[in-house]
């Protein structure tokens, strides 16, 4: 529970910056990161949806092995993969225990494991597709498939503003601390202290709402002068923005491998049953 006490200290401006940069630059060099966003979208469309409707354990296991492989290729920390699968298993565990109360038996384990496998495939597929894709590329990709320009603008704007906003939030939060009074006693399980901090975290949004309103106004004025509004509707702008996107050899290669692999597990599942 001491974590609660130091959480305010942990939420430092610099920490956030590092976090953001890791995402932004993180895994730019991997093979998968170099693929065109559209390729990954397409790939994900299959791996993110198909498992729901596949009930063959063999095929699911084959897919799981494949997406574990691709996830490792993206150089996402192994810990993330581990935590994710443990979390999914934990959820199934809850279901298992709960089902005993409703007259279930151990026969439930197999369907639950299948479910966990499905969810794992889907989650790892999304990690493969999106974790290695920098937000900028994701924005371009989304724009390419017809998502309104406001969304890719917002991603860029988010990167621009988040550190500034966070710093401001931090200042306001500290203003409360620099004039307020923390509880004398921490209370049971640091209860009072936790409540105190949560209250501050919520209250700090009052000043922030007002100052953000002022910012939003200048920003929209500036957008107006920079022709932003008009650009959302201009197809020529979209074309210019997406001029860099190209589907190359690697993309075809990646999709080909995926298809061949899938075909092989689908075929072999006809012969191998368990």
């Amino acid at each position: 529970m001491a974590a609660a006490k130091s959480f305010a200290d942990k939420l430092s401006f610099e920490q956030i910056k590092i976090e953001l940069l890791n995402t932004a630059y993180g895994n730019d060099r991997t093979l998968i990161a170099k693929l065109d966003p559209r390729t990954l979208f397409l790939w994900y469309t299959f791996f993110g949806i198909a498992p729901w409707f596949i009930y063959s354990k063999m095929i699911l296991a084959g897919m799981l092995v494949f997406v574990i492989g691709t996830t490792i290729m993206t150089k996402v920390s192994r810990l993330i993969i581990f935590i994710l699968i443990m979390g999914l298993l934990g959820e199934s565990g809850y279901l298992l225990i709960a089902s005993f109360f409703f007259g279930g038996n151990l026969g439930i384990i197999v369907p639950l494991l299948t479910l966990t496998m499905k969810l794992s495939v889907i989650s790892l597929a999304s990690i493969t597709a999106f974790c290695s894709m920098s937000p900028e590329r994701l924005g371009e990709g989304l724009l390419r498939i017809g998502v309104p320009g406001q969304v890719s603008f917002s991603i860029s704007y988010g990167y621009r503003m988040l550190p500034t906003l966070f710093e401001e939030y931090n200042h306001i939060f500290m203003s409360y601390r620099l004039r307020g009074k923390s509880p004398e006693k921490h209370g049971l399980f640091y209860f009072r202290t936790v409540i105190y901090f949560i209250k501050l975290a919520v209250k700090s949004f009052y000043p922030l709402l007002l100052s953000m309103a002022k910012r939003a106004r200048t920003t929209v004025e500036a957008l107006e002068t920079k022709g932003g509004q008009y650009a959302f509707r201009n197809p020529a702008v979209k074309k210019l923005k997406l001029a860099k996107l190209r589907i190359g050899k690697n993309d075809y290669f990646f999709l080909l491998i995926s298809v061949l692999y899938l075909m092989s597990i689908f075929i072999s599942s006809h012969y191998v049953q368990f």
């Binding site: 709960a98 007259g103 639950l112």
Partner: peptide, 20 residues
């Protein structure tokens, strides 16, 4: 419901899902 084959047939599962 979609993810588990023959969801209703698995005894105790529907109830526990709804309960949780």
């Amino acid at each position: 419901w979609i993810g588990v084959d023959d969801f209703e047939a698995v005894s105790g599962l529907p109830q526990s899902v709804v309960a949780i």
